[in-house]
């Protein structure tokens, strides 16, 4: 079975929320998962990131990257202190809204090379396949964000009747 990028993004965002990530970080993770999977990177790191919630890279990477973006916006070096290059970090960088990449400086660790005047290129996403285990994990986590159905919810929650014949 193949999945659309939008499906994966939405499911991953819900999964992160179901696993305890706040909404903004969860939504960002959804974008990262699409980048990661379409680049055919290691699926296991996505599962591990979800398992690490409510801590781990899903919360940590956005903070470091946002600081680097903010620094870049002020003309300062966009350092990424304390981070080492890994596949998930690369996906986080490539999911930024701007053209950006990682740069190893040798002595000072990683830096973000970013052009704040150039949006990230949006190509046609590939169909996503071969990640059934991750899909199952994300589906289970996403289910935690849904409110169980009840009779009263069913009758009044949507503001419409249960049948319509006009």
């Amino acid at each position: 079975m193949s999945w659309s990028a939008t499906e994966i993004m939405t499911l991953a965002g819900k999964a992160a929320r179901g696993a305890g990530a706040p909404p903004a970080q969860a939504a960002r993770f959804g974008q990262v998962v699409v980048v990661h999977l379409t680049a055919a990177r290691d699926v296991a790191v996505l599962s591990a990131a979800l398992e690490a919630l409510p801590e781990g890279p899903i919360l940590a990477y956005p903070l470091v990257l946002d600081q680097a973006l903010s620094d870049a916006g002020q003309g300062l070096p966009a350092a990424l202190p304390g981070l080492e290059q890994d596949a998930l970090l690369v996906s986080f960088v490539e999911a930024l809204p701007f053209q950006a990449s990682l740069q190893a400086t040798g002595t000072d660790g990683l830096r973000l090379r970013v052009d704040l005047a150039t949006p990230r290129p949006h190509g046609v996403p590939r169909r996503i396949t071969g990640c059934d285990g991750l899909i199952a994990q994300m589906t289970e986590l996403a289910d935690r964000t849904y409110v169980p159905d009840s009779d009263s919810s069913r009758r009044v929650g949507a503001g419409a009747r249960l049948t319509d014949n006009d």
Partner: peptide, 26 residues
């Protein structure tokens, strides 16, 4: 605001009368 487990239908609830506010949509 919440999403129901029934076909993921979006719904609105009364926070003080109904269960589910802990799963509130942001």
């Amino acid at each position: 605001w919440y999403v129901s487990a029934a076909k993921q239908e979006p719904r609105l609830g009364n926070r003080f009368d109904e269960a589910g506010a802990d799963l509130e949509s942001p």
